[in-house]
Amino acid sequence: MISTLKVERAIKDITQEELARIIGVSRQTINAIEKKKYVPSTVLALKIARYFEKPVEAIFKLETED
């Protein structure tokens, strides 16, 4: 899965810590998603998308091998 979370975060100029606090997860979770070590659940993906006011597909996309 491709994740543009880091880019979106840079556009909004918000740290991992702040984003994690707003969404209600730990900072490790945001970090793991950005590092492609963790695929978020649908609920978490929707929450992230809602914060950035974008559809989920704008932040998380399928890769060819998925």
Binding site: S26, Q28, T29, Y38, P40, S41, L44
Partner: peptide, 11 residues
């Protein structure tokens, strides 16, 4: 639980 328990910690 951890201080902030979430789905990644559960994994």
């Amino acid at each position: 639980k951890e201080k902030q328990e979430d789905e990644f910690i559960e994994k």
